[in-house]
Computed example of a mutant assay.
Amino acid sequence: MTVNRKRLVFFERWFHPVAEDILGAQDDIELVRLHYGDPEPENWSALASACGYQVAARTELKEPWFGTAELLSRCPRMLALSSAGAGFDVIDVEACTAAGVIVCNQSGTNSQPVAEHAIGLMLGLTKRIAFTNRALLQGTAQDRFRLTGSNIMGKTVGIVGIGYIGRLTAKYCRAFDMRVLAYDPYLSAGEIAARGAEKVDFATLLEQSDFVSVHCPRTDETLRMFGAEEFARMKPGAFFVNTARGMIHDEEALLAALQSGHLGGAGIDVFDVEPPPPDHPLLHFDNVIATPHIAGATHEAVHDMSKAAAEQWLALLRGRVPPRLVNPEAWPAYSARFEEIIGFRPDPLLAA
């Protein structure tokens, strides 16, 4: 009996080899590893015959292998693109929908470590952990009261985007008896209350929060949503934390708000260019803790994300509705293309 093998391509490696173990063992899936250093014509040839493309995270992904309209135009058999993590800003979702290509992500699979990281940055900033460590190393810690930090207990935190990660961050903040505000225009006050926060508008969140923690995706709507005006509106001495995506905040505006002393500090896991160069000015403030987009990349999380991605590909390529579908509006056109390319009709969307 002839097996209808579906080609799935990826560049270099998955976050964790468990994905290759799962997918490589399937008779009906041809898993193909590509390399950025190989000749472009060879990579384009492999992509042109693929039904699926696992797109690497932005930090590792190289041009021209983003999920663009141009890539789709050169891949007539392409049915689905999947991002490595929760974010899918490396994929042009609108172009995919127009082409009858579905987009998936791994939303929810690394929520816990990112929320933990956000709390860790808040604690590190208020307790001045990085600064006091450097003071000890530099021999300038003789007067310990000069290094005094503050509590987060009872303070107000404003969460921007209260999805999987935001709601866990809210939960952890409540363990410190913090007042939790949330700005999320896509959720009602009741839905936000069920996630452990009080719904407020963006201006109120900025004005009332001692900590602002960003947990929204990077989209056209959220790009540069934190600029000079927004930082100026934050409480004097407040802390800004971004574990979501670079370019949601304007780095120059954040730099100015820190230089002026208006903000008390910042915890930044994401940058416009990743990793940032060693001379990046934000890395040289005593009241900034910076990490290299590592919040969601714990040992446990990279395993879980890769396993979830592999299992989603199994479901998708066998005609089932993937559990983390980003653009359900593409399903009708996708279903017709799937039947034409694979030979049978996938499940209806309502079966999800």
Rank of each mutant, 00 (worst) to 15 (best):
F66N: 09
F66T: 13
G67K: 12
T68Q: 12
S73M: 06
R77G: 04
M78W: 07
L81Y: 10
S83W: 09
S83H: 09
A84G: 05
F88V: 08
F88Y: 15
I91G: 03
D92Y: 14
D92Q: 14
A95Q: 10
A95F: 04
A95I: 09
C96A: 14
C96L: 03
A98N: 15
I102C: 01
V103A: 03
Q106S: 14
Q106P: 05
G108M: 15
G108W: 15
N110P: 13
N110D: 02
S111K: 14
V114F: 06
V114L: 09
A115C: 07
A115I: 09
A115S: 02
A115H: 00
E116G: 02
H117G: 10
A118P: 01
L121Y: 08
M122H: 12
L125Y: 04
T126F: 06
L137E: 11
L137M: 01
G139D: 03
A141F: 13
D143H: 04
F145E: 06
R146V: 09
L147F: 12
M153F: 15
K155A: 01
T156Q: 04
G158N: 07
G158P: 01
I159F: 05
V160K: 12
G161W: 05
G161F: 09
G163W: 07
C173E: 02
F176W: 01
D177H: 15
M178L: 00
R179C: 08
R179K: 00
R179L: 03
R179A: 02
V180F: 02
Y183K: 14
P185W: 01
A189Y: 11
G190I: 02
E191I: 08
I192Q: 07
A193H: 14
A193S: 15
A193R: 15
A194G: 13
E198Y: 10
